[in-house]
Structure formats: structure tokens, C-alpha cells
Amino acid sequence: MDDIIVKSITRIIIPFVQLYGIFIILHGHVSPGGGFSGGALFGTSLILYTLIFGVDKAQKKFSHRVSEIAESGGILIYLSIGVIGIFTAGYFLSNKAAGFPLGEAGSLLSGGMIPLLMIGVGIKVASTMVTLFHTLIMEERL
């Protein structure tokens, strides 16, 4: 799409959508939302970018290599946080018993490992959504 209005509006909107996505990911433990919905929102903003500016530009911003690292990395964050539990509490994915500080209820820094896991899930979901969209709409070419 070559419409200048659409492009400028998208440029303005996308940071807000991404900010909202990050907000939802980080506030998963105090309000509705969490890794999945936030990650999906973040991914949607990048999909919007792709729709307006084309696949080539979007792929420059979010290349295959980045997406590969983000996908494995999201789960590896999740796993490594879980593994801490094995050493400190004797069980995989322990939270309180593993010594994660629970913090004050309702504040951003509470819930022990919950926000950390949400971040891992969010990274994973966002990158997955974008990569899926790119792969599905791309015409086969060399």
C-alpha cells in the first residue's frame, strides 16, 4: 500500500500497540492477560507493519535468524528458570520453594517467577506469530 496517510498513521500506532502488548505481558499476574495475549498483540503489531510496508521491509526488521533465536530463546528462558527449581527446591518449576521473592501482592514486582515465565512465553508467542505470517504469505522464491 502506497498511501501516505495509512503509512504515517501506522507508524504512529505501532509503538502504542507494542507498548500495550508489553504492558499486558508484564502485568499478567496482576490483571487479565499474560504471555499469550500480550505476545499475540505484539505479534499483531508486527503483522500490521508487514501488511502496510511489505514483507521485504518487515523481514529486514525481523529476519529469519532473529526469529530462530527468539523462538528457541523463549522456551530456553522458561526451561532455565524451571531448572533453578531443581537445584534449590528439588522440583522442576518450583516458585516459592525455590526462593523466588514473592514481593508485595498486586505490585509489578510480585509473583516470584511468574513474570519471568510470562516474558519467555511472550517472546515465543510474538516471534511465532510474525514468522508464521511471513512464511504463510510469502510467495515461493529464491
Partner: peptide, 14 residues
């Protein structure tokens, strides 16, 4: 609300 948010983002959106 959590499920509704996810469904709106994933089901209706993506």
C-alpha cells in the same frame, strides 16, 4: 477476562 482477551487476540485476530 483472560480467556476472552486471548480469544479476541488469537481467534478473531490472528
Amino acid at each position: 477476562p483472560d480467556v476472552a482477551l486471548t480469544e479476541a487476540a488469537i481467534g478473531a485476530g490472528i
